[in-house]
């Protein structure tokens, strides 16, 4: 995949950082404001896809990010299940929230018990998964031979 014109590259370099920051903000504040792991994860994936589209990539970096993103996606899923399992191990039930983690101060960042770490886990999972899907669908190493 070749990169795009310098105009696109400069703008993409400016925007991708902001997009990533906004994605992480949405993930971290999912229990206080609209958003959450799913929305923030897709935004993080969009930041990576923007960079990948604007700058292009060579085959070996693409293969590395492909492997890395599928591993990170699995780790996000494992983290989510572990958070749910902690309730079973520590108290009584799978997905036990308040009794395991405490509810924290309402309307502050540290509140909602499991919801903040679970949002982070889901954000990692969704972001890495969609970036892997994009690499699989659009990347140069799969270009068809005519």
């Amino acid at each position: 995949m070749r990169g795009m014109s310098p105009v696109v590259q400069v703008i993409a370099r400016l925007l991708a950082g902001l997009l990533f920051l906004f994605g992480t903000y949405i993930v971290m504040h999912g229990h206080l404001t609209p958003g959450g792991g799913f929305a923030g994860g897709v935004l993080v994936a969009a930041a990576f896809i923007l960079m990948s589209l604007a700058f292009g990539s060579v085959e070996h970096t693409e293969r590395n990010s492909y492997t890395l993103s599928s591993v990170v996606e699995s780790l996000g899923g494992v983290l989510f299940v572990c958070l749910a399992l902690a309730g079973y191990v520590a108290v009584a039930y799978f997905f036990q929230n308040a009794a395991t983690y405490g509810t924290g101060t309402p309307l502050k960042l540290i509140s909602g018990g499991m919801i903040l770490p679970a949002n982070i886990a889901i954000g990692i999972k969704v972001g890495a998964g969609l970036f892997a899907v994009f690499l699989a669908l659009g990347a140069s190493r799969f270009v068809m031979k005519d």
Binding site: L32, T33, G36, N97, G104, T105, G112, G113, I115
Partner: peptide
């Protein structure tokens, strides 16, 4: 749950 966003409380708790 301690979460101010009721939708987040429903989907994750």
């Amino acid at each position: 749950t301690g979460a101010a966003n009721v939708v987040a409380a429903v989907i994750l708790d």
